[in-house]
Design a protein around this nucleic acid. Sequence first.
DNA 1: TCAAATAATTCAACCAATAAACAAATCAGA
DNA 2: TCTGATTTGTTTATTGGTTGAATTATTTGA
Lengths: 375, 375
Amino acid sequence: MMTASNAPVRQSSVRAHNLALVLQTVANSPDPISRASVAGATGLTRATVSALVDDLIAGALLAEVDPAPRSGAGRPAAGLRPAADGPAGLGLEINVDYRAACVVDLTGTVRHHLVEAGDQRGPGSLDGLTRLAARALRLARAEGLTVAGAALAVPGLVSAGGVVRVAPNLGWQDVAVGSQLHGLPLMVDNEANLAALSELGTGDLPPSFVYISGEIGIGAGIVLNGALYRGVRGWSGEIGHIPIDSAGPRCRCGARGCLEQYAGQEAMLSAAGVTSVESLAGADLTVAGTALGTAIATVVNLLDVDTVVLGGIYAPLLPGLHDAIDAEIARRVLTADWSPVRLRAATLGPDAAVRGAAGAVLRGVLDDPAAYLAR
Amino acid sequence: MMTASNAPVRQSSVRAHNLALVLQTVANSPDPISRASVAGATGLTRATVSALVDDLIAGALLAEVDPAPRSGAGRPAAGLRPAADGPAGLGLEINVDYRAACVVDLTGTVRHHLVEAGDQRGPGSLDGLTRLAARALRLARAEGLTVAGAALAVPGLVSAGGVVRVAPNLGWQDVAVGSQLHGLPLMVDNEANLAALSELGTGDLPPSFVYISGEIGIGAGIVLNGALYRGVRGWSGEIGHIPIDSAGPRCRCGARGCLEQYAGQEAMLSAAGVTSVESLAGADLTVAGTALGTAIATVVNLLDVDTVVLGGIYAPLLPGLHDAIDAEIARRVLTADWSPVRLRAATLGPDAAVRGAAGAVLRGVLDDPAAYLAR
DNA sequence: TCAAATAATTCAACCAATAAACAAATCAGA
DNA sequence: TCTGATTTGTTTATTGGTTGAATTATTTGA
């Protein structure tokens, strides 16, 4: 929980913080972990950890499992794991040609995943999404899961309060999605942001990185110190219109030579003379890679992140893009000599955004388990 | 204090947090403020605030002053103010043609300010800085101030542990400044970062903004949610090499068409055909302004900040730059229609970096007064 | 079979915030 | 000028939560 630094701290906040600390320590451990190990890892005493774990087990956030095989003398430890039958997150996504819902439990397991293909352009598609969400909810509840909340990924700019300012490819403008769905709290966020969170959740990324989502538009999700950076109004990461060449082709935004004109899906397809994203795999992607490398160099110079994750259509194309990107980074990133920029392909594929949406709900629980327990 | 979220919280942390909360509430209040008002503003009880204030007064962090003029019935309040005779910060700066030191107390008053003109290129200039710091220290201690630490502003890239990786205009490369000076903890940071903190301290800026420092090079200090964002390795804000035109003039960094080639001090002087920064005031700055606007648009699209502060040589030139910057922002910032980007000239002038350095030390005290009291 | 080792729980002590009562100092109205 | 209302600040008993030491539980190895 990003504790508001201008709020008073009382004893109950201490407990709330330490509950989160214990829960996250267990959640971040690859194997079942004992109370004593949690105490060692967190700096709390075993007595305190035991008391906190009691609460977490009573609230179905943690579960005891068979102890891991041990060596050496001593009483065997009871293993702790996030509970599979406790809270779950409902992730939703709406995109140009499909809508999707998924239910993920605290162990990270995708319990249900529903996808409906079809044109979603126009705000009417929200009704269909509501029905899809209801179906996913019924499936989750039938299994005894407590759905803690929902999050919706949208390819557009989202304001506070769940208003989609503009989603160009959906044809949305000032669509109020709201902050409730079937009685659950609903969070609406940009698809690149949620996909970035999703990749962060895989656990093999550093706490600060930038996720670049290549679709028809190009967006970025910025993760700093383990938390999504959303910007003052929630509109961070609009990377598609970084200028590459002020004399370049005119862009739909009105300026010239934006990144999107070189590395957007349409631009790459027409440059390669093909019509499907799959066919790009064999094409020469130097122009797109150079433009992307220029933009990445700008991002790295500005934010000093050392890892960039390429998602969306870029993930499968990374082998063809890699050299051109690297060359541009070497030329433009001032600090490349001291510490290299790592390029990675996203690992989650097209599901990243929905799963990230469900993950965002669960992250809320992990960040403030006391609030969940008190519900 | 940026509480490490993976650290346990104990009762003493509660006290540490609330001490900071009370101290900052008093420090942020324009007028002397009563214990009862602090209680109202923070949500703590009057009893708790009284106890915390006792500690802060005993530690010379707060002082009682004559009560502010009041209206209405009731016992008159005792006014609280940051103590003028408590901790002070020692700010240091080394730049191409001068070195400086200043001592600032908790009230924000600059108690001493020493400047020595002269060429500082080459690492030998550190000895002179050490002597200057000793002079400033003697002056501060003679007045009864407790110097809590020192911070040094350098125009270059600084690594953890006080190593200046490179400061091109000083001719420094891998200079280890260290983390101690005359027995005080010493923090070394980029000049733009500290200047940004300094502007933040003036109090009339929002919690998130970008400060752009125009000197021979161009740097940026990024403040997000009231805290400096330093990046993974401390090298954030290298804005000078944002590409403006890939076919533009070659830059000393090896790439082409970097911002510095259009809006750097040298570029502006030679474009205007003058030799002094003062003479630029009447010149046509459209080219520089357009380049700067392009770079600012990139920063805003990426970080979604709504305020940009122009410092260094840009501050006095803002009237001549404003229109060209605005035009470029309007064209390139996607969200400009919903919420304008505010451009401001820096208010502190050339002293911003030294004062920011002293301010950084004081900020450390404000953020964790318990550590200062326990010293 | 017993000692050593490790895990988890119990319990008294302690620390810090709270709530409520109390003391202090002023204003306002008769 | 007295008196009650009002607000500030302090005192005191209570509560919530962590700590540390002692205790219980369960295994390995000699």
